[in-house]
Nucleic acid binder design. Sequence first.
DNA 1: GTAGGGTTAG
Length: 703
Amino acid sequence: MSTRALLHVSAFSLSQVNSQRLFSVEYAVKLLKKLADDGNFKLGKVVHALLVVSSHASEDHTIQNNCLINLYSRCGQLAVARRVFDRLSQRNVASWSILMAGYLHNGYAWEVTKLFKDMISVDKIFPNEYVLSTVLSSCSSGRLLHEGRQCHALVLKSGLMFHQYVKNALLSLYTMSSDMEGVLETLKSVPGLDIITYNSVLKGFLDHGYTSEALDVFSRMLADGSAGDSVSYVNIFGLCARLKDLKLGKQVHCRMLKSGLQLDVFLSSAIVDMYGKCGEISGARYIFDSYPNHNVVSWTAILAANFQNECFEEALKLFLRMEFQDVVPNEYTFAVLLNSCAGLSALGCGKTLHARVEKRGHGAFVVVGNALINMYFRSGHIEAARALFSNMISRDTVTWNMIISGFSHHGLGEEALDVFQHMLAVEEQPNYVTFVGVLLACGHLGRIEEGFYYLQHLMRDIGLEPGLEHYTCVVGLLGKAGKLDEAENFMRSTPITWDVVAWRTLLNACNVHRNYDLGKRVAEHLLQLNPNDVGTYILLSNMHAKVKRWDGVAKIRKLLRERNIKKEPGLSWTEIRNETHVFVSDDTQHPETAQIHEKVRKLLADIKPLGYVPDTTSVLHDVEQEQQEGYLSYHSEKLAVAYALMKTPSQAPIHVIKNLRICDDCHSALKLISKVTMRMIVVRDVNRFHSFQDGSCSCADYW
DNA sequence: GTAGGGTTAG
């Protein structure tokens, strides 16, 4: 019966019968229960008042009074609930239990254990299954380990171990105290698990990284003939997402389809998340589109899936659709959006979102703060990122990592290491990612010994096992310092499977330091790993050119032509007054092409007296085009910089983003352009930032 | 009359 209907009946009784028999206790109980379930405080008070005037609120109606306590605590009115409880002349185990549940659900776990003691000592009531499961839950949610153990003893004494609710609460307690062995033990010894047990154990294992045990529980559940409900699948999709195991994810998805389980908003979010994290954006989009009733979370999940798969623009566009459907974004949504802006270096869009975030009071959330810092760093605005960091109310490991790696990518090694020391001083625990940033910083500063100290001692002291990324940083560190043989020896002597990135790091070092022999060996190795790797060919060709081995250059070009290997087209873009202008290397699409080319020619002429010599050897482009005179002046970053110089005020810094590594020629040209125009020019390439100012670059000519 | 499990950011 609906609340209104119940109330209608009550009103009817009120008018029909005299005030002595307003409505029966059964009615009152039914009505109060319904109101409690709905959390309807307003109507609840009315009914309470009716009960009082009809003298139904007398003390001998314990069940009815229990319902009142329940009503108020479910409406978040704990003080009122407590007053009703305290005035009872007769209370039973349910009165206690209801009040305890009230305190538990309103976040006062500690209060529950106090009530529990009073119940036993004052009223001499021995706990039943309701009380025990509530108290056990309070111990887990309040992290009250000691009390939890005492309750465990009581459970054994009471013989309620086999009660489903009690057993589940006990399992949650084990999970909370990270006693996964205890969980396994209970699973073995206690038969007859219901779906809730399976699901909470599944979640427990997942939260503690027991992935294989989680899978075991899932298969045991299926083997037991329990098909698994949407909660089970939400958990298991979460596992696939964490493992980034697309194959497993698809298997689970098939299983779910076969079981006939219908999508709900939780499930669709979890599946979207799984496909997103496993790198299959099409799967994520398909699931999202096949479920109609989305909420903030599921919208955020599809935005995140797009972000994770580098579909940054798509994420921002989808957000418009989300707003159009009147779904209100929360802090997670803003974090994803800001990170998408970071991916595009879309400062204008990022600033707009920043304003919205502050206006709505989302700025205090760590996730949002981190995303803002990321956005400003990736858009090249170091000072804005730094200011945000200093003003943050709460920080987490990600915040610190973000600042350290942000400074490192901008070539600010000293700053990065200062922040790292600061982090240690405030006893924030560094993690795997932290040390990647730290080792990068050491690389910029050429601090070899310090780098090795972090790798070999500090990391191990903290209990972190160095991984491929750290070792690659060390290769870069040695390579940058010109210790190429050491770098090679380090790679040969470290028992790890090196990837393309690591070898390319060494090859790049060989290139910069013109170590032709080692470079050739490394390049050959790289080409064995991937015979069509354009990046390797470019580096190899650059190296040949630098030592003037023109035959080598010609050979590589011929090879590329024969194999029809094409370089990814060079793209640069820059944001001017909220509009993004994109330039391709041999671009003539831009409406102002003629003026832009004229500007480039003028800039190059201006820097010639400063010693600029066009370097036709440093890039490997489409051969025919490259042979044309003046081709280099059409490089996309030069076009973008020229355009920005034309369109922005004379003091404004220029920000350009490009999809490839910046080439030698553009690098030396931009250094000089920054000098003659007295402008700061910040270029974000695939790997790092180059901040050109007064004739030099923040990368100190090593990238 | 009272008690248990779920989705989104790096």
